[in-house]
Simulated assay, not measured.
Amino acid sequence: MGHSQVEKAATRARVLQLASRKVRTEGVTRLGIAELMNEAGLTHGGFYKHFASRDDLIAQAAAVALAEGTAKMERAANKNEQDARAGLIDAYLTKRHRDAPATGCALVSLGASAGRDDSQFKDAYELQVRTYLELIEGLDDSEDARAEAMLTLSALVGAMLMSRAVTDQDFSEELLETVAERLKQRGAQASPVLA
């Protein structure tokens, strides 16, 4: 790859990374191309050297945001050698995660937008849901591992969404702590597979 191609790829990656953070914090409808390009240190006109359209950028930025979560989920599951599922729950339902939507789980911030979308964005969202379900299911060797994975993922995403949406910080923390505690109690009834 020539020097200019390397620079173009690096610039594109930088814009995508910035856009992925913005869609997680502001949503897909508020993403402005001129503002994004300015923040990236580029001109608005340079946008079309990297992306076919705003929708193209949003679909790719959402895919980046969603995919970043896979490695985080895997690391979280590996933190607790005795109970990988509990490790994942403890790492996910934290104040730190709640307070950092720009780098947090994109399933939380992009769910409503994906539900209204018909494009590649919705496909990327579904792929990430399926990926997380497989990961969580793999931590459980019970007969109903898939159903438990669906319940766990739904509770994780829902608790995080609500904890970010309420104004009372004590209530927000109660949501995170209570859901984490109950999910771990359910998991203790099954035999988790060590990651």
Rank of each mutant, 00 (worst) to 15 (best):
A112G: 11
L156A: 05
V108K: 01
K72P: 03
T178Y: 03
A61G: 11
G111V: 03
L93S: 02
R30Y: 00
S53H: 09
Q17A: 15
E39V: 08
T25A: 15
A165N: 13
L175G: 01
V15D: 03
T94M: 05
M1W: 05
E174T: 13
G138P: 05
S113R: 04
Q185V: 11
S4E: 08
V28G: 06
S20N: 04
Q169N: 10
K22V: 12
V23F: 00
A188L: 10
I89Q: 01
Q189E: 11
A77C: 09
L88H: 01
D123V: 15
S119H: 11
G69P: 02
V28M: 08
A13Y: 00
T103E: 11
L110C: 12
V193M: 10
L42G: 04
E26Q: 14
G69L: 03
A155P: 04
L153V: 10
A61P: 13
R14G: 09
E143G: 15
L156P: 02
V166W: 04
L31P: 14
A190Q: 09
F121G: 02
G41Q: 07
A71L: 10
A71W: 00
G27S: 07
R96T: 15
L135H: 06
L36K: 04
A77L: 05
F121I: 05
Q17V: 08
N80P: 07
G187A: 04
D55P: 12
L31M: 09
E177K: 13
D55R: 13
R85Y: 10
M162G: 05
Q17E: 13
R116M: 13
L36Y: 02
Q17P: 04
L151A: 10
E143C: 09
R186Q: 11
G158L: 04
D170L: 12
R130I: 08
G41I: 07
L135N: 03
V6A: 14
A102R: 03
E26N: 12
A9D: 14
A67M: 02
Q189C: 08
A40Q: 05
V129H: 05
R30W: 00
I58D: 02
D83W: 08
V15H: 04
G115M: 14
K8V: 08
K72E: 06
T103W: 01
A13F: 00
N78I: 00
A195C: 12
G45N: 08
G2I: 06
A106H: 01
M37Q: 03
S109R: 01
D118W: 00
P101K: 05
T94V: 09
L151Q: 06
L183A: 02
V157G: 02
P101I: 09
K184D: 00
D140C: 15
S119Y: 05
A34P: 15
T167H: 08
G87D: 00
A62N: 05
L42Y: 09
A165L: 12
G187D: 00
